[in-house]
Structure formats: C-alpha cells, structure tokens
Write a protein that binds this DNA or RNA. Structure first.
Lengths: 342, 342
DNA sequence: TTGAAAGCGCTAACAA
DNA sequence: TTGTTAGCGCTTTCAA
C-alpha cells in the first residue's frame, strides 16, 4: 500500500502533475472539464496531499505576529513568555513567530499597532483584543487586506477574525460561583466581587455567570456590588482590605480579573486566609503559592501555553489550507485546587 | 535573513552535504576532526535542521500500534475512538496509526499481543499496561528489539518504556478527597470507597492519595473499607446499593475506577442523588449526564484525546530524533463540575 | 489552458 | 573516510 502521489493522480487523469497541483490549490486557468477529470481521479485513488512536501516546495516560512498587552499582569506575562518560547521552537517547522507589546487598554494605540503590523504583511496575526469600535475597525482592515486574524483570551465577536482562542467566560464565572458556594457550605454571609474593568468583555461575562449562579443556587449568600480594581494588585489590595474591614460577615471573595497578589496579601494580613473562601482566575506564581498555603481555595484557569500553540496551529492550518481539529483547539476551563496544581 | 541550510554548513566546514548529514545524525565513519569542524560550523551559523525536508527525504511512513483494552469500559472506548480518529487525521503527516484490542486484565493475552505486534516491526507502540511481570517482560523484549514503547493511562514503572502518558494518580486521589470533603462540608458521617481492582496500579494509587487526605484533613469523616467492583457497572450498582442500605449516615462515595453508571443508577434509585456527594473519574456520556442532573458532584478526568495525540507526538519525536515539549506532554488532572463540562 | 523541468532541504546508495 | 548523484512529493517558473 504505497503512498498515492500527485504523479499517480496525474497519470490516472491523463494530465500533468502541474495541472493536478492547479486543481488541488484552486488556481485559475484550468478548463472545467479538466478540473472534473482530476477531481474524479483524486477521489478514485483516495489521494491525500503530503503537506510536508508542499511546505518544502513552497519554500516559504510563515510569519505570525502576536500583539499582546504590555504591563505587569502576570497572566499576560506568561502568555508573552509562551510566545517567546514558541518563537524558538517553531524555527525547525518553518514558522516565525514575532511578539509586539502594546497597551491594550488604549484602543487607539492598539489599533495603530495592528495597522502597523499589517504593513509588514505577516501570514497571520494573533491579538488580545479590546472590544472597541476602533479596534474592530483595525481588525477588519487587516482581514480585508488578506491577513487572517485570531483573537486570544478576549474576543471581539463582530470583527472579521477567523477564530477565537479562549474560554467561555460566563461558564467560567458560573464555575467560580459553584465552587465558592459549595466551599462556603452552610454558613451565611456576604460575598465580595472584584473585577478589573467591566469594559473588558471577559470580566463582564464572568461577573454575569457568577451572579447568575449565586442568585439561583446560593440565595443564602449575598453578593456585594462589584468593585473595580483595574487589574492592579496595589489597588486590589486596598479594595480587599476595605471589603474585609467593612463587612463583618464576609465569607467569600471572587476576583474576576487579575491582580490576585493584592487580594492574597490583604487576606493574609487580616489573618482571614483560611476562613474566607477565595476563588480567582489564572494560575501564576502568586496564585499557586496562595493555593498551597490555603489562602486561595480554587483557581479557574486557561492554559496560556495551550492558547499560544492553538493560535499557531490555527494560523498554520489556515495558511496551509488544511482543516483544524476542533476538539484539540477548544480551550478548557481548568479548575485547580491545592491537590492538582501542575 | 534567509534560511541556513545543510549546504551552507557544508561550505563553511569545507565538506560535502553528505558529511554534514552524517554528523547531524551521528552516523559512523567520520573522522573526529571532521566532526569537530562540522559541529563548529553548525554552531557558528546557528543551523537548525528542517525536519519536514528530513522526513520527506527519508521517505518512510511511521507506523505506530496502540494496544488497548477491549470491553465495555466507556473511557477505554473513548480512548480507542481517539486512536481511530487519529488514524485518519495522521495520513497527511505520514504517520500510520493502528489499533489492537485485547483483554488487558489478562496478563498472558496482553503479553502475547505485544509480542505479536513486535513481529510486524512498528516504529513505536503505545499500550495501556497491566503491572505484571509477564507484561513487563514483553515490553522489555519490544524495547530491546528496537521498538520504542510508551505506556498510556496505566504505567509499568520498571519496564523499559521511553515515556508514560498519563496523570499522577495519587494526586488525582488527593484531589478527589479534597473536593469530596469540602463539598460534604460540616456534616459528619461515612464515605464509601469503590475501586475496580487493586491490581491496577492507577486505582491503587488513587485510593492511597484519597485516604491520605481524608485522614489528614477530614478526620470527622470515616472512610469505609474499599469495595472492588471490577470496573463493571452491574457489579458497581450492587455494591453502591448495598453501601446505601447498610450505611445510615453515608455522606459521600468515591469511585476510583470505572463503571460509574452503576453507582449513578443506585444513587438515583435510592433518591440519594442530591444529598450523597459523589466524586468519580473520567468524563463519559454517563458521568456528564450525572453532573448535569446533580447526582455526580465532581469528575476527575484525563483527556483521552490529549493522551492519544501526546503519545503520537512522543513516538514521532523519538523516531525523528527531536526533543519533546515537556509542558505540552504533561497530562493534566482535569476537574469537571456541572458548570465547566465541555 | 496545459506541460516540462528545475528546485525546496534533506537522505541514501554508490563510488572514489 | 568522504563526495557525487539521484531522488522524496510538491510547487513554480517558463514555454508551448
């Protein structure tokens, strides 16, 4: 059972290999009847193109650019580290990965960066996007110029992107609620809610899912109004300290955003690390330590390594014109407790 | 910045491409001084071999054989389905994946199957192994004959396998304990423990981890002696029904093995689906349904798709002589509750 | 609209 | 011990 090659198809269809190639890649200038003949031969022989040989012959490296938020947010730093990592590892695969850092919270700067990236004509762009008309505009412009775009972590649903790499954030919020509610148990009291900024689509969706489940399933717990900490750990420390001081019967805190080390610090400073149930997002050095010490009770996570690899696979498949494995590209909502941290 | 090829290295080292190839692949018959010269050139030019071209030139398909348990266990069926799936998808990558089903609980049959597979000289074997001297013997024989072996799901630590694809089962057991303990909350009572067979290394390790955490952290709960259900759902239904009937203050059940649909049926028949906390392993159609209905409180999972893909990647890398990405090949201990089932 | 031929970067057989 | 040569399966000129 030797491999069926383009030559076999050519012979079967009584054309040259070049013509088969034209048909395979839907290139112009082949008579429809010839196309039909070739397609028939392909079907008869069950021909499967050899992607490796195709890439080799094309002799063209793919260049993908990732546009990520600059700043101190540990999760985003990890994401950037994963991109750097991929950069080195992908060379033998003939894909070049570049990283551009930009203040994502600034829609203007972000869209400028996207425009700028477009002028270098990459084979694909991955971006942590802000849901803002200007950004959507810039993404659409890229797409129209023939540069495929995937969004990472935070999506822009109505933009022309070929794929979104990330989790279902309202499900993530619901997950946080169930864990927090069940860990609190039969105790009664109040639950603090912290977010980075509700202009970030993912935070808003998490909050929505969280409140939904809390109200429906844990009505004996009262969710306090959300407080915005701008993903900044210093502000979050203040916010959490205030929460602890003002609320006599605080039994839990959920942080839908970043900046966990501030909340952890406040909890530990108040000696409430153990009795207040704390659920948050993203496994970082700080939250891992919190889990081990018992200050953090559960972490909802999206794996940055998986996300970067997935984005690269999706862009590569797009460039190759091959399909993706849907199940492999679905990013899971990971739950980590003390016992299963990797 | 054009790509550095083997030709560039050859020129730099003043040898032919063939010699560079010999050095790269550590083939015999190159004078040490020449080796040194070539290696220097490689370093100077920062040469990275093109794996695609290498595979193409080798012009050899890889053939990997998976030996999996036959039988009704849903998780194993899913694992087999993932192998079947990979079979089709891997053709364009020039790797052929074959599946052999065998009664894994029978050490003799399993080792015979391994021996038989070895005679077909595959480029690699993946096996769900039983920890038994005969099986270890057969694995070692394969390995000695130059066929690399990876174990899946259940390991044989002292056998000559190049890699184990699976989770840390005692950590999985600890995870189950923490979830069960915290979900039970302040209630007091007994916890039932079910396993398939303690001859399966993974079940034994899970039980160990589970009991360890229960005793240390949840001393107010009494873990009952383990009952073996042989991973059979009909037997498990009896075992669970008995447990429910005999134990007046049963607050939780942990099943370290398969056959969950039996336990679920017993819980629901007794009308105890909600108040008894049930933690088990592997997300299947039955456990998913149990989660949604609230009968199952948490599922500890290992992703069969990830495991099969990982095994293939590890075997391919071995055949190519390229390194693996450790983080990508670490199988996570997934936790699923109602809200984050995929 | 189609075909012939050269080459992508590497490996393998044979020759020197 | 080393070099030469002919491919691997596909794409890409260029010519017909």
């Amino acid at each position: 059972m030797a491999r069926v090659t383009i030559q076999d198809v050519a012979r079967e269809a009584a054309v040259s290999a070049a013509t088969v190639d034209r048909v395979l890649n839907r290139r112009e200038g082949v008579r429809p009847s010839t196309v039909a003949r070739v397609e028939n031969a392909i079907r008869r022989l069950n021909y499967q193109p050899d992607r490796l040989a195709a890439r080799l012959a094309r002799s063209r490296d793919y260049r993908f650019v990732f546009v990520l938020p600059s700043g101190t947010n540990t999760f985003m730093q990890n994401l950037a580290a994963e991109v750097e990592d991929a950069t080195g590892r992908m060379v033998p695969e003939r894909v070049i990965v570049e990283l551009v850092s930009v203040d994502v919270f600034d829609a203007e700067k972000l869209s400028e960066a996207l425009e700028q990236v477009g002028t270098t004509r990459p084979d694909g762009v991955g971006v942590v996007a802000l849901d803002h008309p200007m950004v959507r505009e810039a993404m659409n412009a890229l797409s129209d110029a023939g540069v495929p775009v995937v969004t990472l972590v935070s999506d822009v649903p109505n933009a022309r992107r070929i794929h979104h790499v990330g989790i279902d954030n309202s499900a993530a919020g619901r997950t946080a609620a169930t864990l927090l509610g069940r860990f609190v148990g039969t105790r009664r009291g109040k639950v603090g809610l912290i977010a980075g900024s509700l202009f970030l689509r993912d935070h808003a969706e998490r909050q929505y899912g969280f409140e939904q489940v809390m109200h429906r399933e844990f009505a004996h717990l009262q969710v306090l109004p959300v407080r915005e900490g701008r993903d900044d750990y210093l502000r979050n420390e203040e916010v959490a300290a205030q929460l602890l001081e003002e609320t006599t019967d605080l039994v839990g805190i959920y942080n839908a955003g970043a900046g966990n080390r501030g909340v952890i610090a406040a909890l530990e400073a108040a000696g409430r690390g153990r009795d207040v149930v704390y659920v948050a997002h993203e496994l970082t050095q700080f939250t891992r330590r919190g889990l081990v010490r018992g200050t953090v009770d559960a972490i909802i996570n999206q794996d940055p390594g998986h996300e970067v690899r997935s984005a690269i696979r999706v862009l590569t498949a797009h460039a190759d014109g091959t399909p993706i494995v849907t199940s492999q590209e679905r990013i899971r909502i990971d739950i980590f407790i003390r016992d299963n941290v990797p």
